Amino acid sequence: MFARETPAHVLSSTQPTPLTWGADWWVLACLAISLLLYVAGVAKLWPRLEGGRRPVLVRTAWFGAGWLAMVAALASPLDPAGGMLFAAHMVQHELLMIVAAPLLVLGRPFGPWLWALPSSWRRAIGRGVHWRPWALAWQAITRPLSAWLIHFAALWVWHAPPLFQRALVDDTVHAWQHASFLFPALLFWWAVLGARGPAPGAAMLYLFTTMMHTGALGALFALSGTVWYPAYGDGPLAFGLMPLEDQQLGGLIMWIPGGLAYVIAGLVLCLRWLAPGKSDAVNTA
């Protein structure tokens, strides 16, 4: 039930991909390990917290919601549907970039993950994190402008027809595509929502410009009269859609609900700045 060894996608309405739960073993392993380490870390920290447990419970809820969003994107029937329907593929990518990524950032997983490890491992990782080349590289890619550029490049480069269509028929490229959407999105949301995020005006600028360029890409799909990804073949017919209608629906999903997510994030940030004493849900302890 929970293992799929078939090729990435079967693009035919005559032999449609079964819409079942499951994923490749390594995807399931990564999901399971990330959750088990987080739970183990929180359990280890819990006795030490005494009066400071509420922020940890809130962050645990954020992480759990983000983890469930990843499961929905990567291990639910949405994943095989994304091989037949461009609109489903867009829902999958939006779940990773604008639902799972910010929720995981708000969950602050690094602390619990580290606490779940043996103390000798924690010390070794701490030394590695403070190793100057690594520290400089991390600072460089997590600066708001750098994270914004990485996120922008990943989104637009992977939607170029040759790369996107290659991901439809190659498991390895498909995995890289998902990683290239999730991890730059994590960097972007860390830069905006993290404890050392930019000033309020700058954060709003990054959110607004991201909403604009992602909306522009969605509008290109929604308003185009040409099918960008013919590799989907007759897959959309299995869902009662013509290929161009499928593309237009996917574009609308990226354009409108996708843009709304950045508006919501901006409102959350405004609430945090206006009521800093009540920001446990979106700030670190």
Rank of each mutant, 00 (worst) to 15 (best):
262 Y>F: 15
56 V>K: 00
75 A>I: 01
74 L>I: 10
260 L>A: 15
212 M>D: 05
30 C>R: 08
166 R>G: 15
154 A>T: 02
265 A>N: 07
185 A>F: 07
66 G>W: 00
35 L>V: 08
230 P>Q: 02
1 M>H: 14
122 R>G: 02
58 V>N: 09
41 G>D: 01
168 L>V: 01
33 I>L: 11
206 Y>Q: 01
90 M>T: 11
152 F>P: 04
223 L>I: 14
133 P>C: 13
252 L>Q: 09
150 I>A: 05
69 A>F: 06
24 D>W: 11
276 P>F: 09
18 P>Q: 11
76 S>I: 07
119 S>L: 15
123 R>Q: 13
167 A>G: 07
164 F>T: 00
133 P>I: 07
219 A>H: 03
223 L>R: 14
122 R>I: 08
169 V>F: 02
280 D>E: 15
235 G>R: 02
162 P>D: 06
41 G>V: 04
217 L>R: 06
248 Q>V: 05
246 D>H: 08
166 R>D: 14
1 M>A: 14
246 D>W: 02
108 R>L: 10
4 R>L: 09
140 A>C: 09
132 R>H: 07
110 F>P: 01
107 G>V: 08
5 E>F: 14
123 R>P: 10
91 V>S: 10
111 G>D: 04
137 A>P: 00
82 G>W: 04
9 H>W: 07
23 A>C: 12
78 L>H: 11
40 A>T: 15
16 P>N: 00
277 G>C: 06
125 I>C: 01
117 L>Y: 03
223 L>N: 13
276 P>G: 10
